[in-house]
């Protein structure tokens, strides 16, 4: 319980820090983002309405109110889910834009990351258990190779081979523009079909790291005395492998899992770009291209929060798995 409260406290503190940094950075930047924004709208020939202007002022400190008043206004807006108005998608708010892109990113990068973590970990356990055999050597070499290939390269190769040459999978987008009224299962199948190539890109490039990391940790735990002692006591292989060797080998990987899961929210930028996938990564690119500061700021905040939350969850899991952590506080 104390452990839990402790972690919660830390989470709240770091969330507050992230929010505050997010507030301060645009105010400390040389040049004014607001000028950029205003210029943008001017050139589009669509001057901002007074409401939007007011929102911008609040967000970027154009107003001459004292800093702390601005700060409270900003925090208050945050609590009401207001991250400002997107420039690119005006009049949509940043919250709306993120709300539309996030499910795609979570669905694609989230699922693909979980698959690569699980698959990589299982294969790593398997390779370590059969260490020194041909299977181990093959698995390790192949995945070292795949994780050494640049990410976007895998994406391009997959698109070329399976999308363009063989035409097995769609080359772009998250779904076919179907007419309204298609049954939900046709739509789901279509989405899955579109997710295969981008998902495979992420899995192929990420799985090697997990596999090799887990394998090496586990080879080490397999050499620990408690594993030999358990074998001496007659503990069966399966149990030895899971509860003694793998159980302890997973612990150092948890932090890595947390980071990976957290960064999922940031979207798999290159994959999304290559496949024109409408996720957060695409939006981030769009935001940068259009100098859409509110959107950028919102996306960065969401990424930071997701990383913090994932870390928090992993620490809780860590506490469950490792009694030393639970009591070490």
């Amino acid at each position: 319980m104390r452990f839990f409260l402790n972690r919660i406290g830390f989470l709240l503190l770091s969330v507050w820090a992230a929010i505050t940094v997010n507030f301060l950075i645009p105010r400390m930047m040389p040049g004014s983002p607001v000028d950029a924004i205003l210029a943008h709208f001017q050139s589009e020939g669509a001057p901002l309405g007074p409401n939007a202007l007011h929102a911008l002022e609040q967000q970027f400190g154009l107003s001459h109110a004292p800093l702390w008043t601005q700060y409270f206004g900003y925090v208050n807006n945050l609590f009401h889910g207001q991250l400002g108005t997107s420039i690119t998608y005006y009049p949509l708010t940043v919250t709306e834009v993120i709300g539309r892109s996030l499910p795609w990113t979570l669905g694609l990068a989230g699922t693909a990351t979980i698959i690569s973590v699980l698959l990589g970990t299982f294969l790593g356990i398997y390779a370590a258990w059969h260490r020194g055999t041909r299977i181990d050597a093959t698995l390790t070499t192949v995945t070292m190779f795949t994780s050494a290939i640049p990410y976007f390269w895998i994406a391009l190769i997959l698109v070329y081979l399976f999308g363009f040459e063989l035409n097995w999978f769609p080359q772009l987008h998250a779904f076919t523009t179907l007419s309204n009224g298609v049954p939900w299962w046709r739509f789901s199948a279509d989405v899955l079909y579109h997710a295969v190539l981008p998902g495979a890109t992420i899995v192929i490039s990420a799985i090697g790291g997990w596999l090799v990391g887990m394998r090496n940790n586990m080879v080490q735990t397999l050499g620990e005395d408690y594993v030999t002692f358990a074998r001496a006591r007659g503990v069966r292989d399966r149990r030895l492998m899971v509860f003694y060797a793998a159980r302890n080998a997973i612990l150092p990987n948890l932090t890595g899992f947390a980071m990976a899961i957290g960064f999922v929210v940031g979207g798999a930028l290159l994959t999304e770009v290559v496949f024109s996938y409408p996720g957060i990564g695409m939006q981030l690119l769009t935001a940068v291209e259009n100098e859409d500061y509110p959107l950028m700021q919102g996306i960065f905040l969401i990424i930071a929060l997701a990383v913090l939350l994932a870390n928090f969850l992993v620490e809780l899991i860590y506490g469950l798995l490792d009694p030393r952590v639970r009591q070490g506080e």
Partner: peptide
């Protein structure tokens, strides 16, 4: 061998400090 060991012959390890699984 698995069933023979420990019933017929057992061993106290040199490193008893590390002979127990830290998470059990």
């Amino acid at each position: 061998l698995r069933t023979f060991r420990w019933k017929r012959i057992a061993m106290v390890f040199q490193s008893a400090m590390n002979a127990l699984n830290p998470v059990m």
